[in-house]
């Protein structure tokens, strides 16, 4: 161990102060969300968010369920599409592609991970929505939201699955080859089970990302508060609702928006703790 002299002690003290601030940021966020939503949480019973007739905040009807349903449907739809595509991409990079093509494709995916959500939303609005409109009006719909979200979470799923697959020990792969397993037999019987928890953690993180995504969904989903009957119906998600109404919300309405932010935060926190737990198991 190093012997600590005064400069070192000073350095560590300063570093500690900064690090404590980093922890405080999370507490501050939780505290302020709770503080802002406290008046409504105290005044209204929680059942109001489920049993009110609809979402008419100016008339004091605060049913969050249609928007929660919209959020969940859009996220699940996006995962349904993005998981097979993302897994295929990861398998392609690790087991199928020749090495230069694999590097190229991986770089492409990494670059796509950096494209801002507003650009995906803009592309969806100008290209995807008119296309869907030709097929089945009105175009701005659950389907458009699902497709845009798919594009946004696909790089995340691919890159986490890639990391998990690349971490499978070479011996396992070599043993499978020595036993004469076919390529798919090796992938489905050895590689995927070995990388399972890492891949699952990545999918859960992708779900969290999809639930919280705001701008892209706001731009293509049509933003009508309703339970969608088909994928062509417009929906509004919780995050989009905050972005739409925060500008003019006052009093209770504003507090309810903070409640929905808190709800979103809790959903995402649960998902990311599950992902963290899975990651920890993988390393244990």
């Amino acid at each position: 161990m190093f012997r600590l002299i005064p400069t070192d002690r000073l350095l560590i003290a300063i570093l500690r102060i900064f690090a404590v601030n980093t922890v405080l940021v999370l507490l501050l966020i939780l505290a302020f969300l709770l503080l802002e939503s406290w008046p409504v949480l105290m005044q209204l019973s929680l059942t109001r968010f489920v049993t009110d007739t609809s979402w008419h905040p100016l008339e004091g009807a605060y049913n969050l369920m249609p928007m929660l349903a919209g959020t969940l449907l859009a996220s699940m739809g996006a995962l349904l599409l993005a998981v097979p595509l993302g897994m295929s991409s990861a398998l392609f990079i690790v087991f199928y592609a020749p090495s230069h093509l694999a590097t190229l494709y991986k770089r492409l995916i990494e670059l796509l991970a950096g494209i801002p959500s507003v650009v995906f939303g803009f592309w969806g609005l100008t290209t995807l929505v008119p296309l869907i409109n030709q097929w089945h009006p009105p175009g701005a719909s659950l389907l458009a939201a699902i497709l845009v979200l798919t594009l946004m979470v696909l790089p995340l799923i691919t890159l986490t699955a890639y990391t998990a697959l690349a971490a499978v020990p070479d011996e396992l792969i070599h043993n499978a080859a020595a036993l004469g397993l076919s390529r798919w037999g090796m992938i489905s019987g050895v590689a995927l089970p070995a990388a399972g928890s890492g891949i699952t953690a990545g999918i859960i993180l992708a779900a969290a990302r999809a639930l919280g995504e705001t701008m892209a969904v706001l731009m293509v989903a049509g933003n009508v508060v309703q339970y969608p009957e088909t994928v062509f119906d417009p929906i509004r998600t919780l995050a989009a609702n905050i972005a739409l109404e925060m500008a003019y919300a006052m009093g209770d309405h504003r507090a309810v928006l903070f409640v929905s932010g808190l709800l979103l935060l809790l959903l995402v926190m649960v998902l990311s703790s599950i992902a963290g737990f899975l990651e920890k198991q993988r390393h244990a």
Partner: peptide
Amino acid sequence: FGKTVRFSLHVLAGVPSIVFGLFGNAF
């Protein structure tokens, strides 16, 4: 201490950006 910091950063990384917007507006 390290575990606490890492956990809080892990959670912070998952917070949706609109929630940061709400917090920023209020704080």
